[in-house]
Design a protein around this nucleic acid. Structure first.
Lengths: 158, 158
DNA sequence: ACACCTTCGTTCGAATTTGAACAACAGGAG
DNA sequence: CTCCTGTTGTTCAAATTCGAACGAAGGTGT
């Protein structure tokens, strides 16, 4: 067979799904970013760091583990944790079992900042995404994108 | 009623949809970025600029219109068009009917760069997203996220 | 104990992104 | 025509992001 085969382009429906995904993603991020910054002085990234720490046992996570959850680079996380540290919302604690290890840990002030920022953020996510979709659409989105994410997680590391 | 009402938090399904969306979006962007840069020396943003210009009549668009399609800031677009101009893939042309106006215009070299980059990019989008989902899931995604995007477009401008 | 390969988090420089400020112009009301 | 308001694209400084390189340490096999 020829190596000059035409690739399988996206048909109209596939293109609509892909464009919808990209555009919705960009528009949403843009809006959430604005709202969070105005309302709480936090970037979306910083907010997500607080959320993941808050959900973790003892409110602390190893840097690498946190970077994985956030889907960001390690150096990017180092930068943002430093910022949050300056704001007093997060602290660093060294790991007892591994000298190299560093725990990012939510401070009381960080917990309070999250408690204050969350309602507005969740309300906007609801208004812009969740409440726009039906229960069935949400289920399909969760299942489909969950599968997509799972596959992406797999051949990222190896 | 009290103004201290608990906000409507996301239930398990809603959270799954929201997390799936965010994570899939980040992972996808990361992968596409890497692939495009390695394969064609283009960033995802630059690739999208070429795509939109290519799809436009005469291969040219006003800066503002292009920024809207890309869902990016005007200053960000100015920067990227300048980069593409240095690479010889895009040119600037002033608008006849409006002295302030500037058209970004695809060059022959730009068309060629797109022709060369597109197959690999589309193949990856297929592998990571499109082909992972069923026809029904794609339809739901297109319709749902299309609606989400449409609503976001509305109260962004006014 | 030793060599070897991997992992951890940070640092560094370069690239990118953003919003605000800006100057120039367009378009309409009076 | 003239003022007024909104648009257009760029510039600017600041913030953020990334990947590569790094030093330090863990873990394994011999």
């Amino acid at each position: 067979m020829s190596t000059l085969n035409e690739p399988r382009w996206l048909d109209q429906d596939e293109m609509a799904a892909w464009r919808g995904f990209v555009v919705a993603s960009n528009l949403l991020n843009r809006r959430l970013e604005r709202q969070l910054k105005e309302d709480s002085g936090l970037s979306h990234q910083q907010y997500e760091i607080l959320v993941h720490l808050s959900a973790a046992p003892a409110g602390s996570l190893r840097m690498t583990e946190l970077a994985d959850k956030l889907v960001t680079s390690k150096s990017g996380l180092t930068y943002q944790v430093t910022q949050l540290e300056r704001m007093g919302l997060v602290g660093r604690r060294s790991c007892p079992s591994d000298v190299r290890g560093v725990f990012a840990e939510l401070t009381d002030q960080g917990r309070e900042a999250l408690r204050q920022a969350a309602p507005g953020h969740v309300a906007l996510v609801r208004e812009l995404l969740i409440d726009v979709l039906t229960r069935e659409q949400l289920a399909v989105l969760a299942e489909g994108l969950g599968e997509v994410s799972a596959r992406l997680r797999l051949d990222d590391a190896p």
